[in-house]
Amino acid sequence: MLIRDIRDGVHERVMDNSLLCELLHPGREAAPTGMRYSIAHARVPAGERTFPHRLKTASEVYYILDGEGCMHIDGETASVRPGQAIYIPPGAVQWIESTAASDLIFLCLVDPMWREDEEELIGR
């Protein structure tokens, strides 16, 4: 059985400027899992945003847990709130900003699993 608890994790500032805590990543587990995807817990502090970036061939889903924000994908913009899932297709330029007085918190699911060489910053 494989269980990860966010309370045991550490959030680190990553390339896109979010604070990220990797929960499950099949390439970093002690035993094979059979998972293709990875999942991370992300936080964008109030008033901050991520840098425009893209995943070259992987798709991504953000699931908003707390806070409010504005999602930008390939020139489209939409307000986001808790309970919403956002699909980000492979190759799409994307960034998200926290628009409330509290942090924007969400899960990031990447399929196939996130790899550093797969992510590309587009601008700051």
Rank of each mutant, 00 (worst) to 15 (best):
M1Y: 10
L19N: 05
R36W: 10
K56W: 09
Y63L: 14
V61T: 11
V14G: 00
R28P: 02
W114C: 06
R13C: 05
D5I: 12
D103C: 11
E48S: 14
I86A: 12
R54I: 13
Y37F: 14
R49I: 00
I86C: 10
Y62A: 02
V110P: 01
D16V: 13
W95L: 05
I88H: 02
Q94L: 00
H53C: 07
R49H: 06
L24M: 09
G123D: 07
L24Y: 13
R28A: 10
G27R: 09
D5R: 15
A46W: 11
I3T: 11
L109D: 05
I88K: 00
V44L: 12
E60C: 05
E29S: 12
T33A: 12
V110D: 00
G9I: 01
L109H: 03
T33Y: 07
V80L: 09
L20S: 13
Q84Y: 08
R43L: 09
S18E: 01
Q94V: 00
Y37W: 15
D117G: 08
V10F: 08
Y62C: 06
I86K: 05
R28V: 02
G91V: 08
E119F: 06
A100W: 10
D74M: 01
R81T: 13
A92F: 07
A101R: 08
G67L: 06
G83I: 06
P52A: 04
L19D: 01
P26A: 05
D103S: 15
L121T: 02
L24S: 05
L109K: 00
V44F: 04
D74N: 14
E118I: 04
R43W: 02
D8W: 00
A31H: 08
G123M: 06
S18A: 15
R54V: 09
T33I: 08
E68K: 10
R124V: 04
A46M: 07
M113E: 13
E116A: 15
E118C: 04
W114L: 15
G83T: 04
M71S: 05
P26H: 03
I3K: 09
G47C: 13
S18V: 07
N17G: 08
S102L: 04
E97W: 06
R115C: 03
I122K: 04
P112H: 02
P26M: 09
S102F: 03
R124T: 08
V14E: 09
P52Y: 04
V10A: 13
P112G: 05
L65R: 10
R43Y: 00
P82V: 10
G47V: 08
I73F: 03
I39D: 14
Y63H: 15
M35K: 03
I39C: 12
A92V: 06
I122L: 11
W95V: 01
V93E: 15
G91L: 09
H25K: 07
S59H: 10
G123N: 09
C108Y: 01
G75F: 00
S59E: 15
T50K: 06
D8G: 15
C108F: 03
L2A: 10
D111R: 04
T99H: 11
Q84K: 08
R4Y: 12
